[in-house]
Design a protein around this nucleic acid. Structure first.
Lengths: 345, 345
DNA sequence: CGGCCCTGCGCAAACGATGGCACAAAATGA
DNA sequence: TCATTTTGTGCCATCGTTTGCGCAGGGCCG
């Protein structure tokens, strides 16, 4: 009944050697005699000894735990991202402490604090949409906990991995225009979000580049709710000259927009061509996936973020010295076509 | 540059008191004088002292970390489940160590071992589909790490939370039959899975109960791949007397089955009525969601699993004594109808 | 005024493992 | 044969925190 876990002490006691000898024998220290080493290792195996990581980490001031905070794991983008993170972590013997912000800065703060308490070695985070204040994240600095941002990254200097959606949007607009779609609508997110600005700027640049003029009436905002998207669609569809192509902020807005269009007898991808960001597998099951999508490589972003983190941690332990420069990895998004649209004009 | 984190020792040194006094002052011990207490607390606040959870947990042999292992976080069922788990955990100041098995027993084992190394306080797991050997999980017993199984639970005695899909399937078959659908197909998972057995037994019982005879030709298996499901569909549709209703193992198989049907000019939910398990939100965006679904409350299951875990941990610390009986929470699944089917006959 | 209790605090052990240093015994070299 | 090196092992401090116990000084009671 005395389920005493075997410790290094226990082994030492039984073998009548000191704990340090056992410690060294187990880590194959060259100064330990072969006989002793064998005896120790045998008994350890027999007892099923496993080092107490807690104790080691405590002494070494590392936990081999990386915190990961995402807005919503239920969004496929993020569930793929965390899979990339996890896989990279396992390869390097790190584990993942998980938390969601639900796009709520308060919750984000709480989660960050809980993780700080646990003394994670580093934090990988995709910011909540509404995070403006970074104090909870800056507080990690004091604890020497590096942060790698991914996907939803802050504008400031920092370690980060992200897709340049500005460029992607420019390309997407160009793609549509070159196929004859000149009235391109955009259902964007709330204007103050970085993610919205990127898309809008890309949209404007993409259209201007083709010598067309931008009609801001074709740009609407959604607050990401179905109602918000429906309202945006209503405005767009009630125009005298409605769009014949529509860029949606992401696949979720895309799906709601399609739903609205269908309810109003619009022929999806005929009357209006729908395109979107993300390229999530689920859209493949929907009746009308976006005609083209901007692939953002969530798995790859996650993987890269984790690898960046590990690089940072290794450098930190190598040299206490200055590491004042930041790693930035910008991925070029790719246009993925599900099917060819009719070329008009 | 000496970013020394404030420790209890540092405070003691500065205030010329002993560390124990500081420790007690911070935890509001009654034997510490008001003056000292205030001085300590003030300096602690000033230095931004935060207790090193690592150290405390190390001493107390608890980490306040619960491991969570899921097959695939990208399945919405599981992403909802982990949200329930996380929320319940936060309420009780626990954090979540996350890992996926990808339905691979080998990987599951690795993840379990990594978590054991981290000395999690408990493990919540939804088993990999193919896990037959429980040795890696039984090994946790030695470390006094309790396990709560959820959703995919083992047949043996254990702490568990799950939906009784046997009952759900009986109901679902009855529902179909009472609306005139008497040739009910079933695309099940591999026969050796517990989850498949439940469904099959429910299917048989549900049909027999209505005094109909079971036609095993209507039961096919899929290995969960699109190809597997397509093959199953092909067999079912090539029957002389094909089914007019189809139960799919889960929403993912359902979606593939619908896709196959559409490719073969079957009128979905007319020629054949499709029903499924899970009731995931994404199916709402598909062209043909299942007509009815068995709601399995993933969020609730997750929440309950975490609460059960906390109960177990609390009891363990209260009494070292026998806790030989297991908690089992069986949820009754609910039939959810998206739309009414035509009643035939 | 002596014994007793309360108040306020410090000492030190403990948690599990690591690693620098010391030291004895054995081996080597001159 | 003695000095020196090598080899194998033990001692002890350390990480940050908690906690049982001890002890001094003051107040109270009889």
């Amino acid at each position: 009944m005395d389920n005493k876990l075997p410790t290094i002490k226990e082994i030492a006691r039984r073998l009548n050697v000191s704990v340090s000898t056992v410690s060294r024998a187990l880590s194959d220290h060259p100064r330990i005699g072969l006989r002793t080493k064998t005896r120790v290792q045998q008994l350890a195996a027999e007892l099923g000894y496993e080092p107490n990581a807690q104790a080691i980490f405590f002494k070494q001031k590392r936990t081999f735990v990386i915190g990961v905070i995402l807005p919503f794991i239920r969004e496929e983008f993020f569930s793929q991202a965390i899979s990339g993170i996890e896989t990279a972590a396992m390869e390097h013997e790190y584990t993942i402490l998980f938390g969601q912000s639900y796009d709520d800065p308060e919750r984000e703060k709480k989660v960050v604090e809980a993780m700080k308490k646990q003394r994670i070695d580093g934090l990988i985070i995709s910011l909540s949409k509404h995070t403006q204040n970074y104090s909870h994240l800056l507080a990690l600095d004091k604890y020497n906990i590096p942060i790698v941002y991914f996907d939803r990254v802050p504008p400031k200097e920092a370690h980060k991995v992200y897709c340049n959606l500005y460029k992607g949007t420019v390309e997407m607009a160009g793609w549509l225009i070159s196929r004859g779609y000149k009235r391109i609508g955009l259902i964007n997110g709330p204007a103050k979000l970085e993610a919205s600005k990127e898309r809008l700027n890309g949209y404007i640049e993409g259209i201007s580049k083709k010598k067309l003029k931008v009609d801001m009436q074709l740009v609407e905002e959604s607050d990401f709710s179905k109602e918000g998207t429906f309202a945006a669609m209503k405005k767009l569809l009630s125009m005298k000259n409605p769009p014949n192509a529509l860029i949606s902020f992401n696949d979720y807005i895309h799906m709601d927009a399609v739903q609205y269009a269908q309810m109003h007898n619009i022929q999806v991808n005929k009357d209006i061509v729908f395109v979107s960001y993300a390229n999530l597998p689920i859209t493949g099951y929907t009746a009308h996936p976006p005609l083209i999508s901007i692939e953002q490589y969530p798995y790859g972003q996650g993987e890269k973020a984790m690898e960046m983190m590990i690089r940072i941690l290794n450098e930190k332990s190598e040299s206490e010295a200055a590491d004042s420069n930041y790693y930035v990895e910008e991925l070029a998004p790719t246009l993925v076509a599900y099917q060819q649209p009719p070329i008009i004009m």
